[in-house]
Design a protein around this nucleic acid. Structure first.
Lengths: 162, 162
DNA sequence: GCGGCAAGTGATACATTGTATCATTTGTCG
DNA sequence: CGACAAATGATACAATGTATCACTTGCCGC
């Protein structure tokens, strides 16, 4: 498997964010609360990008007191911790596939099935970093979101067209 | 000046989008209407990214009948034509700095002064294209938005910290 | 234990951003 | 001029995101 797009096994993916979160909470004197766990768990079981309000819908049944603000606060926390990404182009949120290291990843989004693949491509990172330097910017956020059709959807699409 | 970030002279920048728009309208049997010109002009005179509703505010005085839907429709048209970009990370819109060619550009956004620099960096384009291929995606949209502090704002910031 | 403090939540209200619908108007072309 | 597509106006609404403030929770030192 190419290094560019490691895909973590689901069972292990469940462990990593929690470990990371617990470590970070200790470091910073923050708490890994019920609500934060709940948001994380939903993103995990769903296995795809969800909007804040889709998350809210799914949390309400278990906790009728969930609110938009609450969900956004939890998401904010999880993003700070690096275990959740926000997809700017679709205004949604997704679990990070490999939170074991700090990273400046790229997201590939299929407009057919909605699948999101997370990549950590050295060339892209190097190129964007270099570009920032060239233009005198000290970058602190890099949004790289590539949208198109994944292999599966492309062949389906082609089949339908006939 | 490095090829990566051509910066068009303002006077010329005013011409290019109009030319391009007129050409495109002819091609496609579309119209370059009052409203569309108005949105384009506002983005031009303002010279920075504006949200749809900021645009609306500025258009209302001249045309009291402007509506959100109208503004979004005009923006949609201008984006199709390639003379306006949407900044996903700030939910705003900005005039394209070099609409003379179709492109898959990168945007650098200063969180200090809000300045947006548009780049067309070969390495970045090549790297993102290659990444898409590797993962079997046929890309049709590439969002590359790099946020940080521009040179000017960085030195100011440093000065204030002392 | 328990008092005090910071972190986090709940509740409410609101701000911002973006769309759907449909009747009407405008421009172009024969 | 008449017909037709393109575009607009008007209205209403959907979706996304925040501000505020009182209240609760967990932790830490005593």
């Amino acid at each position: 498997m190419p290094k560019a797009a490691r895909k973590t096994h689901p069972a292990r993916a469940a462990q990593q964010p929690l470990e990371r979160l617990e470590a970070l909470c200790l470091e910073r004197g923050q708490r890994l609360t019920r609500q934060r766990r709940a948001v994380l768990r939903q993103l995990l079981v769903e296995g795809r990008a969800l909007s804040a309000y889709e998350l809210l819908e799914r949390l309400r049944p278990e906790d009728g007191r969930s609110t938009p603000a609450g969900v956004y606060r939890a998401l904010e926390f999880l993003m700070q911790a690096g275990v959740v990404h926000r997809l700017e182009s679709t205004r949604s949120f997704i679990l990070c596939e490999h939170p074991e290291a700090p990273h400046t990843g790229q997201l590939l989004i299929c407009r057919g099935c909605g699948e999101v693949v997370e990549a950590e491509d050295e060339r892209v990172s190097a190129a964007t970093g270099r570009l920032g330097e060239q233009l005198g910017f000290s970058l602190d956020q890099r949004v790289v979101e590539l949208t198109g059709l994944c292999g599966r959807c492309r062949t389906q699409h082609a089949a339908q067209a006939q």
